[in-house]
């Protein structure tokens, strides 16, 4: 038996059971991306017209590889959270909504993982 009152259980996390988690994660990833995106755009500008040797040399640098992995993690997480809201807003049938969310989450995970593996391959592969 719980000694907590019904109101205490209702407060805080709400019907979605995660409270402000989604909102907060979107903001945290946004702030991280502000810095990472500036670094990424500047890096790409330095690599404008670069050949393969130059570009792979850049990504072989462990600092660059690490920042690229951070960018990938925050980027695809932020993307997943954003697309989730878009789907929840515009897709109305419950079954269709769940299928869309699953496909979208899977796609973000797959593309993000492919990016991360490519980075690791360049940084550590022979």
């Amino acid at each position: 038996m719980s000694l907590r009152s019904p109101i205490a259980r209702a407060r805080g996390l709400g019907s979605a059971k995660e409270g402000t988690g989604h909102w907060w994660h979107q903001r945290v990833s946004a702030v991280a991306l502000l810095a990472l995106v500036v670094w990424f755009v500047v890096s790409l500008l330095m690599l404008t017209g670069a050949d393969w040797a130059t570009a792979s040399g850049w990504l072989s640098n462990k600092v660059n590889a690490g920042l690229m992995l951070l960018l990938i993690v925050f980027l695809f997480y932020h993307l997943k959270l954003g697309l989730q809201v878009v789907i929840e807003d515009y897709v109305h049938g419950e079954a269709m909504k769940i299928v869309s969310l699953l496909l979208m989450s899977g796609a973000c995970l797959a593309v993000g993982l492919a990016c991360a593996l490519a980075v690791l391959d360049v940084a550590f592969g022979g």
Binding site: W52, A55, L79, V111, A114, C115, V119, V122
Partner: peptide
């Protein structure tokens, strides 16, 4: 991000794909 993925994967694959 698909373009970014293509760029990174091509970079990992070698000079031809890149």
């Amino acid at each position: 991000t698909l373009l970014m993925a293509w760029w990174l994967i091509a970079l990992a694959m070698g000079p031809g794909p890149f």
